[in-house]
Design a protein around this nucleic acid. Structure first.
Lengths: 191, 191
DNA sequence: AAAAATATTGAATATAAATTCAATGAACAA
DNA sequence: TTGTTCATTGAATTTATATTCAATATTTTT
């Protein structure tokens, strides 16, 4: 028998996962509190007992996304290209194992990109560094010969956006599966 | 001096472009009629003089997207890979030349994917054939040796989703530019 | 120029969705 | 056991936004 504290935490989790799923499938604005409540099998009133507003719930989700998203560093790679391989394979593995990883990935991107996002939430979402983190690694790989030539930021961006697009597809239709990570890494790989 | 018919058509266009821009930047649900009206420099009432509802406006946009999206066929390519090169380069060229191409691209994908889309609109959006159209070309290229091996549908999907992700980024931040089309084609290219 | 048709506006209304709340039930502490 | 606190509900309220409308201005037709 779980303590009341645990129960409470459990409830909050349920709400958050239900909201994450719907926010990703329909978008934040299109998702009704009533739908989230239904998905979490509870009344609207109870949902508000746990979260003071829809926006606050969104904020909590984005904060959770910020935590969970500790991407693997460029540990012990002989070649720069190996970093990208590791990165993509690890990410895809997580996504396959835990559906919420893919969803969170999409949620964070949305929060960053959409003009509809309340400013203070966008700021939180912006804290995940994304494209920029790849630039130095691309540059290293270009010197070294394992990464193709070209504007390093543009290459990083192409890689990242592709993963983004794939994550969106996967979040919406997990049944379709994820591609071979190597295929995507070929975007940056030297010929 | 334009005729009234032309004026009317002009007005409708203005509204549609304003709506396209906002739908893409914020999402359909998050976009307020009042915002569209302001972006199109007209009153809310006038907007309703031209479109009977927000949903109808959305529908018209999706129909427009269906028209405009006559993708180039696999004309006269010696190798399958050339088709993908042509396709990506042509698409990127259009996107660079006409901002609305990238926006429309994103709108259509959203309309297809989002659960929030009214069913009859989704059906219209679904008529653009996307991933499936690539499968036979991938298969041809695999026999031929110009496309890498692996599940043809998965490969097609990876290619398409990547372009999708890049288009989304570009629609939101056109200033960042588009990558070299060849980089993306490398997803499917045989080594 | 007068009449008719169309364009345009913004405030009024209707609708939809978020948020509150008073009431009830269940668990806990005494 | 009994009182107290927390969980839970759904209907009532508030707020946000789509939609309507009556009034006015402009253009076209006769």
């Amino acid at each position: 028998m779980p303590t009341r504290q645990e129960q409470k935490e459990q409830r909050r989790q349920e709400i958050m996962y239900a909201a994450l799923d719907l926010f990703v499938k329909r978008g934040y604005a299109a998702t009704k509190i009533a739908d989230i409540a239904k998905a979490a099998s509870m009344s609207v009133g109870l949902l508000f007992h746990y979260f003071e507003s829809k926006e606050k719930l969104y904020e909590e989700l984005v904060k959770m996304g910020l935590q969970g998203t500790a991407y693997p560093g460029a540990q012990k790679c002989e070649h720069a290209i190996d970093f990208f391989v590791q990165f993509a394979e690890q990410l895809f593995t997580y996504m396959r194992q835990q559906p919420y990883v893919a969803k969170m990935f999409v949620l964070m991107a949305d929060a960053q990109r959409s003009e509809g996002t309340p400013e203070h939430i966008r700021e939180i979402a912006m804290q995940v560094n994304t494209i920029e983190q790849f630039v130095p690694i691309v540059e290293w790989g270009q010197k070294e010969g394992s990464i193709k030539q070209g504007d390093a930021l543009a290459l990083s961006s192409a890689f990242w956006c592709s993963i983004q697009g794939i994550a969106e597809q996967y979040a919406a239709h997990p049944d379709m599966g994820l591609p071979d990570a190597q295929w995507i890494v070929d975007i940056v790989r030297a010929k």
